[in-house]
């Protein structure tokens, strides 16, 4: 069953359209990636799914329900969670407060203690620094905090924008492994510039170029395609 479906989506900023007829679907308990170069529209696509960018045409359907008209916070209540590329933490609050606010929705609030323990298990460094102000942490730690905050809402679909930016490759790898482990309980949609890592963890991949999906398939299928080999994998066909 498709947990998330995007159909014929057109979206952009103030008279400047960025996305053109984007179709995409995410099946339950899978990891799906959107790859594409800088400026291809990945962030706009994720923002449109989250309600942070206005949709001019098309539909976003989550759990069979059309959510176009819902505001961001209402989408979060439904079970979407988002890690923006800018992280959007609360810099003058402690790590623990940042995490607690991740569980702001009533459903998440009920199991806030358990979630907190799990996030601390997931990222032990956050536990060590639970009283430190978020704004004073390193980029990698902030990224972990942003992911931890998103996990606190007990999402059914976790959406990650540019996970690898600002992180050491080894750290990214570790986080991806952990996410892979989580996908038994959770579905993940991620936008990545780092093609190799996307190919490693994903069950399905969409290639976005100039605001349009130009190819899609499983990592195996795509790595056979000469287009992808040339443009992204750096392999001469």
């Amino acid at each position: 069953m498709d947990l998330l479906k995007v159909e014929g989506l057109k979206a952009g900023y103030k008279g400047l359209n960025v996305l053109w007829d984007v179709d995409l679907s995410v099946k339950k308990n899978t990891i799906v990636s959107i790859i594409g170069s800088n400026g291809s529209g990945k962030t706009t696509l994720l923002n449109a799914i989250m309600g942070l960018v206005e949709i001019s045409e098309g539909d976003v359907v989550f759990k069979g329900e059309r959510i176009n008209h819902l505001r961001t916070q209402e989408r979060v209540t439904l079970g979407l969670a988002f890690v923006p590329s800018e992280r959007e933490l609360f810099p003058q609050m402690s790590v623990q407060d940042n995490l607690m606010l991740g569980a702001y929705t009533p459903r998440a609030r009920r199991s806030i203690k358990d979630s907190l323990r799990q996030v601390y298990d997931f990222f032990p460094v956050l536990k060590e620094r639970s009283n430190q102000l978020a704004g004073t942490m390193s980029g990698g730690e902030q990224q972990m905090l942003a992911i931890g905050r998103a996990l606190m809402s007990l999402p059914e679909l976790l959406i990650l924008d540019e996970l690898s930016t600002g992180l050491a490759p080894a750290v990214t790898l570790r986080i991806y492994r952990k996410l892979k482990g989580l996908s038994e309980r959770m579905t993940v949609l991620l936008a990545e510039q780092n093609i190799h890592q996307a190919f490693m963890v994903s069950d399905y991949i969409y290639v976005l170029e100039n605001g349009r999906i130009i190819a899609s398939g499983s990592p195996d299928e795509l790595s056979e395609s000469s287009l992808i080999k040339n443009a992204y994998l750096g392999v001469k066909a």
Partner: peptide, 10 residues
């Protein structure tokens, strides 16, 4: 402190 961050938290 951060309106986008708040919306993302619900």
């Amino acid at each position: 402190q951060n309106q986008t961050g708040s919306k993302v938290c619900g």
